[in-house]
């Protein structure tokens, strides 16, 4: 609410757990907030390993179901493998992204994150990088399974696929973290996140799938698609940092 003076919570010992972890005294620098948010999110994920395990298992199930649904063979993998792989990444990623802000609303920790405009951008960046690392970790498990279950062709260039995964996951995590924060207060948050993220993610998904397809095939260049992904990453990361204030503002 803009008309009322901003009621920033004082950094007292009664502040939520996140705030005490971030701000022992005074105003911490944005970088400190970034690292604190990043460490805290990853530590929580590590402590609540059952969620992480569930996400991994879910991604594994997607891959296994696909391999039955499509009668996985090397010839098919060369044609549509990129699409299947990214659908599995996307579904697992949606779970991780939804969790990113679900725990903030549960403990009402969003107020603790929103100390000042600079700290909000830093907190959002921290949450983004935690989601990014988490998604990459899940993908690191899915990728070898995919290679085995889908009989990846021997000529596939895995370095290129890894690079695509990093750029593509960055794109999903950047827009996804922002929309996760955006939908945190909405009714039916879990349903809203895919409705917001998927349309905006389509251009990135096209680029990831096309690049992965090129590298699975083992010939041709994917430079155009990687450039597109890099441009997408740059634009939406910048937008997210600039507009962090808008979604994390406290009412």
């Amino acid at each position: 609410m803009h008309m009322t003076p901003p009621a920033a919570p004082p950094p007292t010992p009664t502040a939520p757990a996140s705030a005490t972890a971030i701000a022992p005294a005074g105003h911490p620098s944005p970088l400190a907030i970034f690292w604190a948010t990043w460490r805290r999110d990853l530590r929580i994920e590590w402590r609540e390993r059952q969620a992480l395990n569930a996400m991994l298992f879910y991604a594994l199930l997607v891959i296994v179901i696909f391999s039955f649904a499509f009668e996985a063979q090397a010839a098919l993998t060369v044609r549509v493998g990129g699409g299947l792989l990214w659908v599995a990444f996307l579904f697992a990623g949606l779970l991780a992204l939804d969790r990113a802000f679900a725990r903030e609303t549960a403990g009402d920790c969003l107020t603790g994150l929103a100390i000042s405009p600079a700290s909000r951008a830093a907190a959002l960046a921290g949450k983004f990088s935690a989601a990014f690392v988490l998604m990459l970790a899940i993908e690191g498990v899915i990728l070898p399974l995919f290679a085995v279950l889908f009989n990846a062709p021997p000529g596939a260039r895995w370095g290129g696929i890894l690079l695509t995964a990093v750029l593509g996951t960055w794109a999903l995590a950047a827009t996804g973290t922002y929309f996760s924060a955006l939908g945190a207060h909405a009714r039916q948050r879990t349903l809203l996140l895919p409705l917001l993220l998927l349309p905006v993610a389509i251009p990135a998904v096209i680029a990831m799938v096309q690049a992965t397809q090129v590298y699975l095939h083992g010939q041709g260049g994917a430079g155009f698609w990687l450039q597109l992904l890099a441009a997408y990453d740059a634009i939406f990361t910048a937008l997210g940092v600039l507009l962090a204030d808008v979604v994390l503002e406290v009412e």
Partner: peptide, 10 residues
């Protein structure tokens, strides 16, 4: 506020 944030992204 949330709609405006989304509008800028899309």
């Amino acid at each position: 506020r949330l709609a405006a944030a989304y509008a800028m992204f899309i």
